[in-house]
Each structure stands twice: as C-alpha cells, then as structure tokens.
Design a protein around this nucleic acid. Structure first.
Lengths: 237, 237
DNA sequence: CGCGGCCTTGATCGCACTCAATTCTAGTGG
DNA sequence: CCACTAGAATTGAGTGCGATCAAGGCCGCG
C-alpha cells in the first residue's frame, strides 16, 4: 500500500459551474437547482506519473473525474501479477464502484501527470435521487465501462502477439491527432495484453521496420502512424 | 444471422408480482404502485440450447432476465472468431445495453435450455424515472457486469493454460453444490480463455489424472471436484 | 562520469498450437 | 437390433511462437 499525500496533491476546491471540461463530465447537464444540492466539497487534485490515487480494498468514499492526463486501472491477479484492465482519459470516471461497494475493486494509477476532481460519494448519492440528469450520466458511465471491458477482452487479449500489439497501438492513438500514438512502457503494454515486455518490444520494432510506425522521441513512447492499413489488417488477420 | 422463432419460444405473459424468483430479479423491490406503471407486456419465453436470443447489431428493444438455465454472452472479434465474455445464470440480466444503445453490443446464446422474461425497454425507461428502487437495482446490475468483466480478464485470460482451465473449472461450480462443476464444450471453454479445444481437453485430463476431478457423466460436462486445494493452488501459482 | 531505468536485440527452450487419428455418444434409419 | 453418421472428446507427434535468459545501448540524473 502506497500512502497518498493528499496535501501535496490538493489544488483547491472545484468550481463545477465554471469547469472548463464540464461538457464532458458527470455534471454535464446539471441545473442551478442541482448544484445547490452539493453540500460536500469537491476537490481538485493533481498526481504525478506513477502515483496510486485509488487502491483496491480501500474504503470507497470518493469517485474521481479525470480532468487532464491519462490513468490506468489495474487489478492484482491471484498469482500476484498486475493486470491493466482499463485506460481512463479526460472526462472518464475512476472508482465508480464507490457508489455501491464499500471498498474499491481495482487500483487506479496516474499514467501521466494528472488532474482529477474528487467527488464524495455522498454528493452522488443525494444528487442522483433528485436529478434524473445525473442519473442518466451515471448510467452512461457504467455502460461505457462495460462496453470497453468487452472491447478490451476481444481486442487486446485475443490472438497473436502481432495482433495484440497492433491493437494497443491503435487504441492509444491521440483523440485530437489520430496520426500520433502514445505508448506506455513495454512492461505496462505487456500487462495490458498478457505479453512479456521483450515480446512487446520486438513487435513494436517489427512495425517500425514495416514503416507503419515512426518514432517521434528517443525513449520509445511517442510514434507517428505512417501506415494505418497495415496495422488494421493485422488486427483482422 | 439465425432467425428467432418467437412463436415457439413464447410461454405466456409474465405475472411479475407472483414470480417465483422475484427476490433475485430486477423487479425485486417494486411496490404495487410501481407495478401499476407497467403498460407493455412482459413475456415469458423459452429457448433451447444453442439458440441466439440476442444478436449483436440488432435493434435493442428488450432486456432479458434469466429465470432458469445458463446463457453465454459472446462477441465477434475483428479477426472473425468468437469470444465468450460473460456467463449469465438465474437472476442475471441480458441485453442491459438496450436501455442506452439503439443496438445490442453482443450475442447472447442459450447454453442450456433456458427460460427468460423479456421486458420492453419502454417499461424500464418509464419505471426507472419513477422508482428509485428499480434505479438502484439497475445500477447494481451494471456494477456486477463491470466487476465480472474485470474478474474474467484477470482470472480466465491470464497466465498458463493450466491456470486458465483451473479457473474455469472453479468459475463453473454449481451455486447449490460447490463440489460439482458443469463445464461447457471444449470449444466454448477455449473461447472463454483464448485456448484451443485440444489444449483445454488436455488440461481437463490432467486434473482428472491428478485426482482433483472425477467425471460424473460420459460426455465430459459434469464433474465432481475432489481436490479443491490443487485447483486453487494452480490459480495462484 | 557512473549509475539505474528502460528499451532493444540475440540465442535457446518449452508450452501451446497444428495436424491427425481414434474413441465415444447420440441420433437416424434400415 | 445393428449399421451408419455427425459431433464431441481424447490422445499423439511435430512445429512454431512467445517466454526466458542474457548482453548491450540509450537516456536522464546526481
């Protein structure tokens, strides 16, 4: 268990009404009357790459909305290894199970430096009864989580190493510029797809040799996709 | 696309108030007033082993509650194969995405002869606004689906064939008699764990040789678990 | 400059896949 | 009742892919 230093992470109390990404988040279509029902503070926190801000088994008192950055959701398997089961980006929610479960069911770790809104479950519980708009947003998040879990299983964890890595490369494309893709460490990519880091490295190298991928940095994280078709074909092969 | 013969499946309109398994299902804690709001017929249907009663891509107009039997939820991967991503038993809900999505996102297939209640999404949509009790039940179903998806990924799709098959054997134990386990066809077990059917067969044989499993039929489906510890140890190895 | 972390590449090994043959069951029809 | 068939499970032999073990390079940092 890695202790979280909340003091260093704290960035201030959130002003949800003036939130820059409110259109994307849970509170997207709340009314003035709804906001008046929020009685517990919603805090704005920052975490550095690698910090765990949700821990499996911990008491679940908050849910988190990702404002900026990327987080990875991990579970510890019975045989002691770590499995990455989901990736969260801006607008996504971490720790949704806090609404129902007394404890969190997975770890959530900052994959980049990250800003999050921490919302007490009490706010969600009281508001969701009064606001069908929040209720609808919550249901959409659940739905998205289920759908992504199925995709994850069907895409990243099925077939040859070549297919799996090609799928990761495509899954990690930037939303704003789809010709770019930001990969995790080879070890993390292995944890996403049940491959060893050496195998992942070999497959990334393979796509570079195929001229489907061009490195944009010297540490093996940012790449330009130069031949989308080759990658997509590998996913269907 | 396999056409569904609704006529042959139809077993009558359901009387939810008198339902034998109501305590387990979506309508568990509805009140009389809630039931009065149900204006579309809820039908009781029966399907035979192997029948598809929800099809990926079809218009999503109903959700289904499993009354008796077992169903498998399958997705078709980009490379044309079939992946089993969930197992549904009595009380579970199939096609929950119908509430939000215009089409179903996976196939649901009867794994045994099966009885289901078919509930129009209109009933869910109108009732859930009026009844926080139904809303809570729905959220619980979503939560369960997400949790199980994570388990599936972490347990059945990680590590050696030995570990995966041991996990399946344990996952398929009977709720009422945990010393018994009912397996699917070797092909389906492979689709659950991303293994070939021959590998699955070899691993089942291995556990029989280890005297952890004793066949109770002659077709390789029903087994008694005689050494739980060996199986559990393999899952943690 | 040395150190540690991460990525890459090479060589070898072993597990799961592939191809193939056999057995068993259930179902069908003579 | 038996012959025949189709589908499923089992078992064997050989292959290949990804794991393992190992070495070397690159980068950031003190």
């Amino acid at each position: 268990m890695i202790p979280i230093d909340v003091q260093s992470a704290w960035q201030g109390t959130s002003d949800c009404r003036g939130c820059g990404i409110r259109a994307m988040v849970l509170f997207a279509d709340l009314t003035e009357a709804d906001f008046a029902e929020i009685h517990a503070p919603i805090d704005n926190l920052a975490y550095k790459t690698g910090e765990h801000f949700v821990l499996e088994g911990d008491r679940a008192q908050y849910i988190y909305t990702i404002r900026t950055g990327v987080a990875k959701v991990a579970r510890n398997t019975a045989d002691g290894r770590v499995r990455i089961v989901q990736i969260l980006k801006a607008g996504d929610v971490a720790g949704l199970e806090a609404v129902l479960s007394p404890t969190y069911e997975s770890d959530v770790i900052a994959a980049t430096d990250i800003h999050v809104c921490r919302i007490p479950t009490s706010v969600i519980k009281t508001l969701s009864v009064k606001s069908p708009r929040l209720q609808a947003q919550l249901t959409q998040r659940w739905h998205k989580a289920v759908k992504q879990a199925g995709d994850w299983l069907a895409d990243l964890n099925f077939g040859s190493a070549r297919r799996r890595v090609a799928n990761i490369i495509l899954k990690m494309r930037h939303d704003d510029d789809p010709s770019l893709t930001s990969l995790f460490s080879r070890h993390d990519m292995g944890a996403m797809s049940d491959l060893k880091l050496e195998t992942v490295s070999r497959e990334v190298s393979y796509w570079i040799k195929q001229e489907a991928l061009v490195p944009k940095d010297r540490v093996g994280r940012l790449y330009e996709i130069t031949d989308l078709r080759k990658l997509e074909q590998a996913c269907e092969a």
